[in-house]
Amino acid sequence: MDAFFVILTGSLVAVTCGILGIFLMLRRMVMIGDAISHSVLPGIVIAFLISGSRDGLAMLIAAVITGLLTTFIIQFIHEKGKLQADASIGVTFTWLFAIGIILISVFADYVDLDQECVLYGEIAYVPIDLWILPSGIIMGPRSVYMLGTVLLIVVITILFFFKEFYMVTFDQDFAVSTGLSVTLWHYILMALISLTTVASFESVGAILVVAFLVAPPASAYLLSDDFKTIIILTVFIGIIVAISGYFLAVYINSSISGSMTVMAGIIFAIAWLLAFRRRNFQKSLKIIKF
């Protein structure tokens, strides 16, 4: 049963991140996902200080605010400060992450958090951390509910606004010419990524979030030219990564998050070789440059 919940948690994160990662990848913005997954840390700490707990709405709201703030600062430094996009991203998220770490150490007595946990998570504890109703009924692992909710939010948003996301991703100028706001959809995407990160940070940590944002979409992109197929493949690959990563960890008696990340890399390598064999040579080369 424990194995089931660990794999379920990993899969929920994989699917959520994968769906969002497809849009990031196609807009060449994977690094922003990386940035946000780290920079929400100060938001998490402040929410913890205010609300005194790790779960609940305060945490989600704080994450969205910090995530959007990160996006805004990156944009601001890039446009007004005339710094290259990748440099603006690097400056912003390291700075925010550092603030988070300082906050943790200053308020160490009040905050039950540490940066190790934020980066690597503690997925093995998922089955122990249960949601228990006041009446005493045990509902199951807390993170499964949290991640399930976020997955639902992500899927519903993308389904409802697929047309808009699709247009903005493929052809920005055309999208703007029809009256869409590229900025608005950009911020919505970033808000969703922030939500995902904060919901996953305890269980899987920021590193695995980044791996799931990048590897399954990139693998799927190499294997297909059709948007819907890419979405389905991404979901499928994400789940495979979660399952195989878990068993790898058990087999070599190692970190679960680490093993899942390794599996994500291995599956990407396989996809790359398959694409190479399909003579999808140009795509294989291009993706290395991301």
Binding site: Y166, T169, F170, D173, F174, S177, S224, D226, T229
Partner: peptide, 28 residues
């Protein structure tokens, strides 16, 4: 009003078919 951008402003490796892109014109 319709706008046709310069061809090279988009990534033609984007996973879409001819029909997908044309249908996009009806979205607005």
């Amino acid at each position: 009003v319709s706008y046709v951008p310069q061809r090279r402003t988009v990534d033609w490796d984007f996973p879409a078919s001819v029909y997908d892109v044309i249908l996009m014109g009806t979205y607005p």
